[in-house]
Design a protein around this nucleic acid. Structure first.
Length: 551
RNA sequence: GUGCCCGUAGCUCAAUGGAUAGAGCAUCAGCCUUCUAAGCUGAGGGUUACAGGUUCGAGUCCUGUCGGGCAUACCA
């Protein structure tokens, strides 16, 4: 809708003899007295032209003209705002687009022909997913959904490492528990994984093999069975949240020699070395990040000969470029904040365009039960598990709660609230609006033979109540909300928006009789309801929550 | 110590540098013989942590202070 104004404003500036290449910003004023839309262009121009903004605004509107039946009034207000008042019929005509496009309303082709990759969750298979991982998972999934609406070919990728020290500890942990299961005395180290799931895996091994594994020093079997069981459980948990990755990228492949006989890891070392950013001392291989202004150099290959996590991370990102992604989104938890800058610097040195990479960092999650805060913890058994949370509050509430706050804010997950089957719970508020419309349409179909599928929106221009215009106008914001979510990698804005739509609909429902209205108005209100239902459905689908037809 | 995030109504949180800082919960007062009251209407509630600065305009940007979280590994 905002795009509508831009060409006319540009034309007017041109014919007023004002030269600028500034972007025209269109805003939606908070106060309806200031019109349906406004622009601050006069302020921006006053800066560069050193002229009075009110004067500039005046010249602008003198040259401004819109097609018949669109903008009914343009005025200069305050210190230099230009406000536009729309013809209500214009809004109602535009709303027909919701019905025409249906599930595609809000989509664009901006990303057509471009490949995007969203990397999220990426937890190593050392244990069940924690609540904190869930937040990043849902965030990443929503971002992927958002990108898909813009025509990108989206890959949802999970990057993991099933080698290395953490997995070694995991294997040892299972072995200890296995020996316990065999009735042997063991002293379980504090440094190892304490969770009950380790016991379950050990018990499984004991069931299959009895105590025949007692003697073996080879941890491989312990590792593999633990990995298999844990990964299966992770994927099951994710699928409960409708998170389904297209691709699981095993870090191990970066250690294996490729076409030219060298591994991707080695290729990174060689390339950085060629640029003078590698040093070998203390038996290790270092990335000279001090040359880039950082405090310390970073180890890429440890004295043990194994790469530290940074090296494969860099090599992994090289594969993303090599695989032809023009947009790469990485979703990390706040605890991985320091991971990215080194990767970024290395990629720049290697000549890659790092502006194609966007990083979304989500802050931590605390859960509260009965007003008591339970802080998320990592390796100990007291971490709150994502699966238990889903058991407790359901998948829809889990997803919505994770993204209804800005990713930059610590999330306070109120379990009591999420469980409540009442109006306090935003999930129910949103879904209720959808169910209410479905119910209404069912009744309309039954009582007056209204054909929902035949609705074209032709009757919408009969509507005249303020709340109806407000609602219609809000529906037209939907495509811009998607853009805004993507600009900030912040699906939370969609939650806010949908909440506003639901609120307006409830208000409309309260104020305007629908089935009891005059038949022509009745049809128009039903059509408006269908539009609202469509936007709610589209939004729910982006957020990954269900759209119940009755509640 | 240093880096990143946060500090907004009693609570949980919004607000592309725009006009009188908004929602929900909680509190108080109303609305169901009428399409789902899981809803709606209204009221009260604020020195946007603090102090400066930038400009037509600052919750938003800059500097400093205070408070909270995360990170500061040859773990990932």
């Amino acid at each position: 809708m905002r795009d509508f104004f831009v060409p006319y404003i540009k034309d007017a500036l041109h014919s007023a003899g004002i030269v600028t290449d500034r972007d025209i910003q269109i805003e939606k004023p908070t106060d309806k007295r200031f019109g349906d839309f406004s622009t601050n262009i006069a302020f921006l121009l006053s800066k560069e032209l050193k002229r009075n903004p009110r004067e500039l605004a005046g010249e602008l509107i003198d040259h401004l003209s819109f097609p018949e039946g669109t903008v009914v009034r343009t005025e200069v207000a305050g210190p230099g705002f230009v406000n536009f008042h729309l013809d209500p019929a214009f809004i109602m005509r535009e709303v027909r687009e919701v019905l025409r496009s249906g599930a595609a309303f809000g989509c664009s082709t901006a990303g057509r022909g471009r490949k995007a990759i969203v990397e999220y969750v990426s937890a190593n298979p050392t244990g069940p997913l924690t609540v904190g991982r869930g937040r990043g998972g849902v965030l990443g999934d929503c971002i992927a959904n958002l990108l898909a609406t813009q025509g990108y070919e989206v890959t949802r990728e999970y990057y993991f490492n099933d080698a290395g020290r953490q997995m070694q500890i995991l294997a040892e942990s299972v072995r200890f528990r296995y020996m316990e299961a065999c009735g042997l005395p063991v002293e379980f180290p504090d440094s190892h994984y304490q969770g009950d799931y380790i016991r379950d895996i050990a018990a499984e091994l004991f069931r299959e093999h009895g105590s025949s594994l007692n003697e073996t020093e080879n941890l491989q079997l312990f590792k593999e069975s633990a990995e298999g069981i844990i990964f299966a459980s992770i994927r099951k948990t994710l699928s409960r949240l409708s998170i389904n990755h297209d691709s699981f990228f095993n870090e191990h492949t970066l250690y294996q020699a490729g076409a030219h006989g060298i591994s991707p890891n080695q290729a990174v070392i060689d390339a950085l070395d060629a640029q003078g950013f590698i040093s070998r001392h203390e038996n290790a291989t270092w990335f000279l990040t001090t040359k880039l202004g950082q405090e310390k150099d970073k180890v890429l290959i440890k004295s043990s000969g194994d790469p530290s996590y940074r090296l494969p991370d860099i090599a992994y990102h090289v594969t993303k470029f090599d695989r032809g992604f023009s947009l790469m989104v990485n979703v990390f938890g706040a605890d991985h904040i320091d991971e990215y800058p080194d990767v970024n610097e290395a990629l720049k040195i290697l000549g890659y365009d790092t502006s194609r990479i966007r990083v979304a960092i989500n802050q931590f999650v605390t859960t509260t039960v009965g007003g008591q805060t339970i802080k998320m913890s990592t390796r100990k058994g007291n971490a709150d598990m994502l699966d238990e949370l889903i058991d407790e509050v359901g998948a829809d509430a889990t997803r919505l709660f994770f993204i209804m706050r800005s990713k930059d804010s610590h999330l306070n997950f109120d379990i009591d609230l999420a469980k409540r089957q009442s109006k306090d719970n935003p999930v129910f508020y949103l879904q209720y609006a959808h169910a209410r419309i479905c119910s209404l349409l069912r009744m309309a179909s039954r009582e007056i033979g209204f054909d929902v599928d035949a609705a074209s929106g032709e009757t919408l221009t009969r509507l005249a109540e303020p709340v109806e215009f407000e609602l219609a106008s809000a529906l037209l914001d939907y495509p811009e909300v998607i853009q805004s979510c993507l600009r900030f990698l912040e699906p939370q804005k969609m939650v806010e928006y949908l909440h506003g739509i639901a609120e307006l609909y409830h208000k409309f429902y309260q104020e305007c009789p629908i089935l009891k209205a005059d038949p022509e108005v009745c049809a128009a209100r039903l059509e408006l309801s269908i539009c609202v239902r469509q936007v709610l459905r589209n939004g729910f689908s982006l957020l990954g929550i269900s759209a119940p037809e009755s509640m």
